[in-house]
Nucleic acid binder design. Structure first.
Lengths: 124, 124
DNA sequence: CACCACCCCTTGCAACGCAAGGGGTGCTGC
DNA sequence: GCAGCACCCCTTGCGTTGCAAGGGGTGGTG
């Protein structure tokens, strides 16, 4: 059961998936299934990571050297691929997070209704 | 070309362009060129709208009935296509803005570093 | 022994934004 | 008088990203 009744819980801005993944793995190594759940509960159900985008992203990040993958055994005694951050990944997470904050706040700002609309008729 | 943290001012999250456009036109009718500049200065130069995405988006919004287009004359005595909000557009802007706020804050939240990482190891 | 939760993955497909192009017009300056 | 720039319109690729929809395998539980 979704925690918040905000219509559909999915849909996340393009480009944020990788950041969310990196962030999730920053705490401790996790496997795909776990990452998905972790992000979901961390966002209180607001964000939903589909497997169809998760795994490709995971492989992409490994290829980019931002993530490291190791086979291991899950808590439930299953074979699972555990992902962990590399230095490159840690750096990317840091820069990416800063960038996200800047851009998202700029958008929110630009989207906010203006109390006192200035005369911006011209481009000049 | 990797991500440059502070240098490039462009790059905006997928899906926000239309909202930004609708918002820009909400004040008063504007033409494409003006919308582009308006968004740029409204975001203090943080957001950059390329013409290659602007015009397709504009046409898309008209097709969706969220924008109305009228030929007119600009302040500089040029022919220009002025866009204005329809009721559908106004509604979309409202809902879209609310949605953006919810999603973006959820992402920001999920991206924030945890001071005291709780034991969330399990999916169970 | 069926079924579910756990776990991995791939193949289309569609949307979005960008780069790179192209065209035309009113001023301004030389 | 005409070069050049700011103003304004548009389109065709292309790459990236995420989703839907599929498929497979295993351990525990009723």
């Amino acid at each position: 059961m979704p925690i918040h009744p905000t219509s559909d819980p999915h849909e996340l801005p393009s480009g944020t998936l990788e950041l969310l993944i990196l962030r999730s793995v920053a705490d401790e190594p996790r496997h795909g299934y776990g990452i998905s759940h972790h992000i979901k509960q961390r966002s209180l159900g607001a964000l939903l990571v589909e497997e169809g985008s998760l795994y490709p992203a995971l492989h992409r990040l490994v290829r980019l050297g931002q993530l490291r993958a190791n086979w291991g055994t899950s808590e439930n005694n299953r074979k699972a691929r555990f992902y962990s951050l590399t230095n490159v990944g840690r750096r990317r997470l840091k820069l990416g997070t800063a960038r996200w904050k800047a851009v998202s706040s700029a958008v929110t700002e630009a989207l906010a209704a203006t109390a006192a609309p200035k005369r911006i008729g011209g481009v000049a």
